[in-house]
Write a protein that binds this DNA or RNA. Structure first.
Lengths: 263, 263
DNA sequence: TTGCTCCTCACGTCACGTGAGGTGGC
DNA sequence: TTGCTCCTCACGTCACGTGAGGTGGC
């Protein structure tokens, strides 16, 4: 019979962990001295300890290890547990690959002319209730001349209603046949003369912060599109522009977040 | 100015986390009402929130994110942080690949004739002080006839000295020119007529539990060797056998752990 | 005034490591 | 008898989620 320290050395785990496994009922000593509380282990228990260590190092939780060590499991149940872990691992590996690719991209940018280049963030997009004006064009080329006036009308109506929005202005753009539907709005309560519309929530969206005037925003969208397709993603809904900082006298200093739902 | 709830929706994080980031000094509100404690955020802060979210999702800790967001960092420092994370990710991916391969191997075994096949565990090997007898052979073919008598002599000496070992008997085998040095021992204090020797500790060893008589242990070692080379590992020291259960009357029921240090 | 949002404090998660303070065994 | 090992209890880790109990703002 081995003391806990000897058994720990053979099993390659800490004494603390053997006590923990005992408390969880995963690996109990052969005999415990009722007077001193000392734990004693038969060498045969090393087989169970080895299996425990092996399953842990494959990334199973201790609860799952308990199921895997349970003698009553059928091969089909064991296979189900292993398959689940296999799928988790595949998911982790591909997520880590994507992270690695993004880190390598940023490293390349740092070596070269980094400052001019955009950074991308993936995050969920919350649903949004907008007080807005909407419009549409048949030809996308007309879009740039139509968005500005729409925002001008929006802010005119807000000023007339005496409403000062607390949050940023928001634009959205949805493909509509050969043309495009679009809207200009702010979040907040209903205002006479303006529509109330809703933007849906999305689990995943690629976003980026663009700094500069609206003249260059088309190029920024093109770069974002390229990034989305290089990451192996697809567009999953209408895109949004969130105008974070729009000092009237300095159109080149505007800060806009571009948001593209993806899947 | 946005309330914490509005800002959280735009940033795609929870209100709880915004308070946490504030407490850590990573992302502080533009203004805090001294009376109510309410936090208010400028829309411009979304750029910082996005960067924070992006770095977190690349797997950086919040402490590292703090360094990455710090304006005072030079491109070289940023590159160093990114490179470190890149190397971590590469390590994780290859570790996960190895886990995946092992899980797939076990799944294949479960489909086929699983029960007869060995399971392998990787764990560290502790240093060991042995009370032992040693010998050597010039020709490895002689080994099997020489190990048994060595153990017989060992146990004879232990009985004569009145020593009952608490732990398992241990054999070790080290290549020595064309032949092999080997030992038979038990852990525990010095015994007259026996040598005292030490086995070194190893960070990594592949181990397996073999059930059966010593006649089949050579085959078990061959399977283990095959597993080691398939896993892309190399031998890194003398191997050990730990005799976990050795009922005298049932040599076919013996339980032995095979241990092979690797790198 | 009613809901809604916001506030702080604090506990739970998971698989450990690392003490503190005390006792048993050779 | 001295060290060494063992015992239990409990806190710290990390990035969160989820309450409890209370207050502010429209």
């Amino acid at each position: 019979m081995l003391s806990i320290g000897e058994f720990a050395r053979f099993a390659g785990v800490s004494v603390r962990m053997l006590r923990h496994y005992d408390a969880l009922g995963l690996l109990s000593p052969t005999w415990v001295d009722p007077h001193s509380g000392y734990r004693y282990y038969q060498p045969e228990l090393l087989a169970r300890a080895d299996a425990l260590v092996a399953f842990r190092s494959l990334g199973f939780s201790l609860e799952e290890v308990g199921e895997l060590l349970d003698q009553g499991r059928t091969p089909a149940e064991l296979a189900a547990l292993l398959s689940r872990r296999r799928d988790e691992l595949r998911g982790q590996i591909s997520a880590d690959r994507a992270r690695l690719a993004e880190i390598e991209r940023r490293l390349r940018l740092l070596e070269g002319d980094a400052m001019s280049t955009l950074e991308y963030t993936e995050k969920p997009l919350a649903a949004l209730t907008l007080t807005q004006l909407t419009d549409r064009v048949d030809d996308v080329a007309e879009l740039s001349q139509r968005v500005g006036p729409l925002f001008a009308r929006l802010f005119g109506a807000l000023v007339q209603a005496g409403v000062e929005p607390s949050g940023p202005a928001i634009g959205w753009y949805a493909a509509d046949g050969a043309g495009m539907r679009f809207g200009a709005g702010v979040s907040g309560g209903p205002v006479a003369g303006l529509e109330t519309g809703a933007l849906a929530a999305y689990d995943r969206a690629v976003t980026t912060i663009y700094r500069g005037s609206m003249a260059g925003i088309g190029e920024a969208w093109q770069e974002l599109s390229r990034h989305v397709s290089e990451a192996g993603l697809e567009f999953a809904g209408p895109c949004r522009e969130v105008y974070l900082s729009t000092p009237l006298e300095e159109p080149d200093a505007w800060v806009t977040e571009l948001q593209q739902p993806v899947k």
